[in-house]
Design a protein around this nucleic acid. Structure first.
Lengths: 244, 244
DNA sequence: TCCGTTCCCTGCACTGAGTGTCATGGGAGC
DNA sequence: GCTCCCATGACACTCAGTGCAGGGAACGGA
């Protein structure tokens, strides 16, 4: 009964990078159906492969572990991010660049809102999945940090700054992403992430407030009472620079 | 042969919070000896308990999983950090406070440099341990972020800022900690962490550069060419404020 | 001193994840 | 039509982690 059920035929794939075998999708679908029905830990790999109508060994051929089936597209997204950063123009602002790289992750989540929200509720309550997600996030953060190290490595504290900026960008992105997921995908994810990344960018960025090509000899004067908290001074400076 | 070997007697413990049973330490020692000899994944829990001369079931009573034996004191440190943050005075600078909280982790590592360096080399090469360490670091970061949320929650973007500051502080701390671990514990860990946390603090801190009680009507004038990168302006402001 | 209670430890059996290996069967290429 | 390739499936195995029951030492009370 197991060999003649819904097992996929061989003809409908190309095995190249173009079309992936449907067994992968069948396993993801079966896994999520059971995870949502009975919970993650109450579902065994045997249950999943039985529902998908495939052999148990095939599961581990497509997913190195049971956790991987919950994050089926992060590997591809991580490769995309690495390629995106590697293709950065030399004169790009590094902080802007890593913010744009972070937006790739948001785009992946936003491509399939229902799936992302389901997965969010799953990872929120299963400690093992939370730990797995952390290791995924860590790899994104490492990709950003490696790029920033290459760009900031020469400056004083370049490596320290690279690590801190990467962590801050990831935290800002995740803050917005999670608030979007909590809204069940109803809020505007792009706007929230733009806002959060804008905060990170304004904290670390080196973007000139005014375009470089206009009136470089203009002068701005900031007056501040000694004793004012530094953040308030910075905010005033920023406001003064933005005012045209 | 197994019941009459090196099993610890009952008399040498008090079972209160004062003296912990030596079995815990015996398991940690046996585990690390084998981990360093053959590697983490080549060592089974049966190997560990055989060397420690205790029953297999006892291992899992002291350590919920095989990974936990590698990080035997993080649970205590996390409790210390939570208590430290909960005991914060109302008028403390939140950013300074979380930096001090992060120093608790460094202190734990510095209490036993040889052990910390061994563990560092172990976690560096074993993916499973790296994932476990990430979940530990995540709990520290959550503790800092929760405290900051409580302090900054009312302000605009308070929650976002709390998450970003917590991530930045953890990243700065870990950057210094790891560079100290890479030096095999020879460098000055305290100085490196102070420097790294100082960077994070100057980026996010609200510390007045000049003491509040002196000449609050003093005036500082900053002049900057329009088009100058913002970070450079901020650095100039900072320099001007620090100059007395 | 003796007994009962209470822990702590141990052995045993079991589940479930993950892996190595080999047989098979069908499709692609010749 | 034949052969080779390779994805798949079946089987057996290791090992982490858990539930359960039994046993023995310390402790308290009589």
């Amino acid at each position: 009964m197991s060999s003649s059920s819904a097992a996929p035929r061989r003809g409908d794939r190309t095995d190249a990078a173009g079309i992936r075998p449907p067994m992968r999708e069948a396993l993801v679908a079966a896994a999520f159906q059971l995870f949502l029905e009975r919970g993650y830990e109450q579902t065994t790999v045997d249950d999943i492969v039985a529902l998908a109508g495939v052999g148990r060994r095939s599961f581990f051929r497509y997913f190195p572990s049971k956790e991987d089936v919950v994050f089926p597209d992060h590997e591809r997204c991580l490769a995309d991010m690495t390629a995106f950063l590697a293709a950065s123009p030399e004169d790009a602002d590094p902080v802007v660049r890593v913010c744009d790289a972070a937006r790739l992750v948001l785009r992946m989540y936003a491509e399939n809102p229902a799936f992302s929200v389901q997965r969010y509720h799953l990872t929120k309550k299963v400690p093992g999945l939370r730990a797995y997600e952390l290791s995924v996030v860590w790899r994104y953060e490492r990709a950003l940090a490696e790029y920033l190290r290459g760009r900031l490595g020469g400056r004083p504290d370049g490596i320290l700054r690279a690590d801190v900026i990467a962590a801050a960008v990831v935290a800002a992105h995740n803050n917005a992403l999670r608030s979007w997921l909590r809204s069940d995908g109803r809020d505007d994810a792009g706007a929230a992430v733009d806002h959060a990344l804008g905060y990170a960018q304004s904290t670390f960025g080196e973007v000139p407030i005014a375009p470089r090509d206009e009136a470089p000899e203009d002068v701005v004067v900031v007056v501040s009472r000694r004793g004012t908290p530094l953040w308030q001074v910075v905010r005033e400076v920023e406001t003064a620079f933005a005012r045209d």
